[in-house]
Design a binder for these strands. Structure first.
Lengths: 361, 361
DNA sequence: CTGAAAGCGCTTACAG
DNA sequence: CTGAAAGCGCTTACAG
C-alpha cells in the first residue's frame, strides 16, 4: 500500500457508508441514539479507509486539546528527565500528550513559553519554574485560567495545585549525622535562596544545628548563583582555600555535587577521607564511587506521576479545592560520610601540601 | 487585571476596531494590501485586548501545526535528554514545538505513538526508534508521508533523513588502544545487535582486531538483550566468573557501563587496576571516579540540533534529496585504560579470593 | 484597499 | 434514529 496522500476525512467515510457525516460522528463516538445497522456500516467504512478523526478539528470544536504544556528548566538534568518521564506515562494513559519546553535558566523564557503554550491552547500546565518571584512570570500566570501544577515552587497570589519535596527532613538527617560524627565545620552549598527547594533545605540544615544547640551559622551556608556544576566547583574551591576549610560539605543538588567532587579532585583531596561529602539527589554512579557518596534521595518520576494525577483531577473537577502533595526525601548513608580527621570536632588541620603540589603541577 | 475568562477572538478585535475579521487577519499577518490606517486601528485593538490568534484554528486552516512529534526510547536516559534539548532549542527558535513521547523499550509503542502523533497532525517526526525491524513500526512508517528524521537508525525501504553517529571510529580507537597495551582478552558488551549502533560499534571493534592481525573473535563479543544497566551487570558477572576472565571490558553505552562498574564492585575488583574499562558515552562523574573512566564520547545535543535542522529543511523543501549526517565519536583516554596485570598479553591469572570473600560476606 | 463568503474537519443541538 | 445546519476561530480567494 502506497502512503496515502491525504488522511481520509469524515466526509469520505460518510460517502462510503452512504450516510451523513453527523451520523458517522455519532457512531464513532458511541452516541446512544445510533442503530446497530448504522454503527456497523460506519465502522466498516471507517475501517476500510483506516479513518482517524482529525485531532485538531476535534480540539477546535470541543475546546480541549488533551495537551499539557510542560516547562522544565533543563531536560538534560536527570531530575527533570525523570519527572517528565513519570508525568508522560501517566498523561499518555489518559489520552493526553506533552508539549515540552526548556527555559534553560532564563526566567524570562518561562513567561514567554507559557504564552506560547497558551496560544497552543494546552488544557493545563506542569511547570518547573526558574523563579518564584519573576514579575513577568507572575503576571502571565495570574492573567490566565488554565490549570497549573507547580513543581517544588510556591507562588503567593497564584492558587495552584503543587507537588513539593520535603527537602528539609532529608537534609536535616544528613546534617545531624555529620554533627553526631563530630563535624563542626560543615558547609552547605546551595543554589539561589530564591526558591522553595533552597529555603526548605536550609530549614532542614538549620533545624539540625538547632537541635544540636548551635545557633549561629556564620559562613556556613554558601549560597551560589544557581544549581550548576560550575557554581558548585567555584564555591568548593573557595571553601577549600579558606583558612579554616570544611571537614564536611553538603551539596544541594547533583550538579553542585559534581562540581564539588571536581574541586576536591583538583585539590588532591578525597571525599570520605579528607572531607566528608553528602550530595542531594541520587545517581547510581555516586554509589559506585570510591568510597560511595552519601546522598539525600528523592523520587523524581513519582513527582511527575503525582503532578499528572493532580492535573487530571483538576481537569475533571475544576472547582475542587487546591491540593499540595509533599513527597519525602531521605538521607542515604554511605562511605563518604565519616568522622572528621581529628574526631574532637575541630578541624583536622591537615597539611595542604599534597593538594598544592598537584595544583601547581 | 483579573484572569480573562476567555481568550479574545478575532471577531472581538474586529468589533473593537470597527472593521471586518478578514481585515484584522490581513493586518496581523502583514498582508501587503493593508492601508496604514487599517493596520494602526487593528494593532491598537489587538493590543488593547492582548489578542493572540488561536494556534489551533490557524493550524486547521493552514494545514500545519508547527508541531514535531518526538519519540525517544527513554527521556530519563541522559543521551536522549541531551538530544531532545538540542532539538527543542533549534525547533523553538523557528516557532515549532515538540510533542514528546517515550516508548520505554516496547517496540509496539513506537508504532502506536506514531499513530497518536499523526492524528495530532504533527508536521514532522524525529524518531529514536527501538527497533529497525519491527514490522508494525515499518508498516506505520511506510503508510504515511509526514517527514521523518531517524536518529541512529537505518531502515531499508523507508526513505528518510537521518542523523547517525560514527560509533565505529571511536570504538576502533578504544579497542586498538587496549590491544596495543597488550590486552588479548577484551570483552565487548553490546546491546541487541539488531540496531545500527550495535552493528557500527562491532564493526569498529572488529576492524581494530583485524588491523592487529587477529581474526577470530569467539566469545569476545557479548551481546545482551538491551542497553540496560541490569543486562550490563549480569553480562559482566558472567564474564568475571569465566575460567578465563577478561583483562579489559568495553561497555557499549553508559547504562551497560554502570552495570559493569557495579559488577566489578561486587566482585571486589577495581577498574583500571584489575580490569581495564572503557565505556561508550561520557558522563562527568565517570571522569571523577578513581581512576577516571575512559570513554568513547559523542555529542548528544548536536544530534538533536542537526536532526531539527534536517527536519526544518525538509519542511521547506519536501522534494529535496534525502540526507544522512554522520556525527563523530572519539576515544577519550583516562586512567581506567592500563596494561593488563601481566603485560605479556596473557591473562594476569589473578586469584579471585578477595572477590569471593566479599561476595560471600 | 476592504468586506462577505467559503471552508479547514469536526460535533451537536435542532428538526423531522 | 437520521440528516441538514450551525459553528469552533481562523485565512484567503473573490467581488467590489
Amino acid at each position: 500500500m502506497a502512503p496515502s496522500e491525504q488522511q481520509p476525512t469524515i466526509k469520505e467515510v460518510a460517502r462510503l457508508a452512504g450516510v451523513a457525516p453527523s451520523s458517522v460522528s455519532r457512531a464513532l463516538n458511541d452516541h446512544p441514539d445510533v442503530s446497530p445497522e448504522m454503527r456497523a456500516r460506519v465502522m466498516e467504512a471507517a475501517e476500510e479507509l483506516s479513518y482517524q478523526p482529525d485531532f485538531l478539528a476535534q480540539s477546535l470544536r470541543l475546546g480541549s486539546t488533551r495537551t499539557i504544556g510542560f516547562i522544565v528548566r533543563d531536560i538534560s538534568n536527570p531530575l527533570f528527565a525523570g519527572i517528565v518521564k513519570g508525568a508522560e506515562q501517566e498523561l499518555e494513559s489518559h489520552g493526553y500528550s506533552i508539549l515540552l519546553m526548556n527555559s534553560l535558566g532564563d526566567p524570562m523564557l518561562d513567561a514567554k513559553h507559557i504564552g506560547v503554550l497558551r496560544q497552543r491552547r494546552v488544557d493545563g500546565f506542569i511547570l518547573s519554574l526558574q523563579s518564584e518571584t519573576n514579575s513577568e512570570t507572575l503576571r502571565v500566570l495570574k492573567n490566565q485560567s488554565t490549570p497549573v501544577v507547580l513543581l517544588d515552587r510556591e507562588i503567593k497570589g497564584v492558587a495552584t495545585d503543587a507537588v513539593l519535596f520535603d527537602h528539609s527532613t532529608g537534609v536535616a538527617e544528613a546534617t545531624s549525622t555529620l554533627l553526631k560524627l563530630g563535624h563542626r565545620k560543615i558547609n552547605f552549598i546551595v543554589g539561589s535562596a530564591e526558591t522553595r527547594g533552597s529555603r526548605d533545605r536550609l530549614k532542614g540544615f538549620q533545624s539540625a544545628y538547632a537541635a544540636f544547640g548551635i545557633e549561629s551559622l556564620d559562613d556556613v551556608v554558601i549560597e551560589v548563583g544557581s544549581y550548576s556544576r560550575d557554581f558548585g566547583f567555584e564555591a568548593t574551591k573557595m571553601l577549600l582555600e579558606r583558612e579554616d576549610p570544611p571537614t564536611a560539605i553538603i551539596a544541594a543538588n547533583s550538579q553542585i555535587g559534581v562540581g564539588t567532587l571536581a574541586a576536591l579532585n583538583e585539590h588532591g583531596l578525597r571525599h570520605g577521607e579528607d572531607v566528608s561529602l553528602i550530595i542531594c539527589d541520587d545517581v547510581e554512579l555516586l554509589r559506585l564511587m570510591d568510597p560511595p557518596v552519601s546522598v539525600v534521595a528523592r523520587d523524581a518520576e513519582k513527582m511527575g506521576t503525582v503532578a499528572a494525577e493532580l492535573l487530571l483531577a483538576r481537569l475533571e473537577e475544576p472547582d475542587s479545592p487546591m491540593r499540595s502533595v509533599v513527597l519525602p526525601t531521605f538521607y542515604v548513608h554511605r562511605g563518604s560520610t565519616v568522622a572528621p580527621r581529628s574526631s574532637d570536632g575541630r578541624s583536622g588541620k591537615r597539611t595542604p601540601t599534597a593538594a598544592r603540589a598537584i595544583r601547581r603541577s
